[in-house]
Design a protein around this nucleic acid. Structure first.
Lengths: 203, 203
DNA sequence: CGATTAACATACAGGCTGCATGCATGCAAC
DNA sequence: GTTGCATGCATGCAGCCTGTATGTTAATCG
């Protein structure tokens, strides 16, 4: 009766089910929000039951974490594809930022990665995910620019976090309907300031 | 029997009850989180019942909004008290930032204003609250500095948002145990960069 | 081919939210 | 001042959700 569906191994079956759950959860978490989406709705949308969900994920939070992790990975991939070569380290940073903002245009990413993720999983877990995917390229870019003497030397990790937060906010603001070009200019100004600001470095 | 409690007018009674609910909710939202705190626990902690809560607030979100609003107001007040006079516009910005970070040291404020608030109330409502209390001073400071020619001219509103986000992230990072001084330096570097970076201002 | 384990569905317990109902007290008008 | 209404608040209820325990089918392995 179930020829094509029963022919898959346990391994494939697991992968497929997890995939369906993550996809359905992603869809609903984006459309509504994590809090306003119930597990019954998720599994209904995935064509499964809550039994499958709680078999593969410890709880609802773990499902969100899987969704977030995958999304962060995807964003990192798009950024790396977008910014390969750059004239100068500073230009590389600005280009990377632009690629990040472009990636965050994908609907729902801001909600997943910047709102629900931090609130539900906590900033610690989000930082850990971020450092593996999102902020990694930014951090490397800043380190390279510092080594090259293109920007003033500042504490690397805090600066990475601060700039990353500025990028995040820019993504949110743009999605909220603000002037994207103005945001890009402000962001570029912030970065360029790092390169020129060697005057006040007497700390 | 209830002499001192029955002697208050309806007006006072309302104020007092709302106050108790907000205080209890604040305490628990900070200790745990918004999501993990139930209304039964809140009213128990306040010595009331859920009837009182839902009489004064439309729903649990409205209670959080009241808590957040009050907290943002308090932060703004502390900042204004902390930074009165400043030598230069740029120094005023840095001092203001330092005052903000100091205010955000108060336990739980980061969770209320930077995590649960945006996630539950949505960024639109939070932006509205922020623009009335928190970011207002920052925005005015940036505008003044631009008028004085102390920093390069960039789109004001986006820049305010971006810098505000950097401040927020600094507060979170510091609370997470990072080196506070390094965060302060990175933040100051970001701001000072705006003042020196007149090279790329060909806009 | 029998036994074990994994994948999944179903049923259940506890808790929570929001509302509707009910009571008691403050308040205003006559 | 007492009559009537509105306000402040407590209690009870309906519906939903989460997490878990139990049962069933299908795959894997000796």
């Amino acid at each position: 009766m179930q020829q094509e569906s029963a022919r898959r191994s346990n391994r494939e079956r697991t992968e497929e089910t997890r995939e369906k759950l993550i996809a359905a959860a992603r869809r609903l978490f984006i459309e509504k929000s994590y809090a306003e989406t119930g597990t019954p709705e998720i599994v209904r949308s995935a064509g499964l039951t809550r039994g499958a969900l709680y078999h593969h994920f410890a709880d609802k939070q773990a499902l969100l974490q899987a969704v977030v992790e995958r999304e962060a990975e995807q964003v990192a991939k798009e950024i790396e594809q977008g910014s390969d070569d750059a004239a100068s380290p500073v230009r590389a940073l600005i280009d990377g930022g632009r690629a990040y903002l472009a990636a965050m245009t994908e609907p729902g990413r801001t909600r997943l990665l910047l709102l629900d993720g931090p609130a539900v999983l906590g900033r610690a877990r989000m930082d850990e995910i971020d450092s593996r995917h999102g902020n990694r390229t930014l951090r490397e870019g800043l380190a390279a620019a510092m080594r090259a003497g293109a920007i003033r030397r500042l504490p690397l990790d805090p600066l990475t976090g601060l700039l990353g937060a500025a990028f995040d906010r820019a993504a949110l603001t743009i999605e909220a309907g603000a002037d994207a070009d103005a945001c890009h200019r402000a962001l570029a100004g912030l970065i360029e300031g790092l390169s020129a600001g060697k005057t006040g470095g007497a700390d």
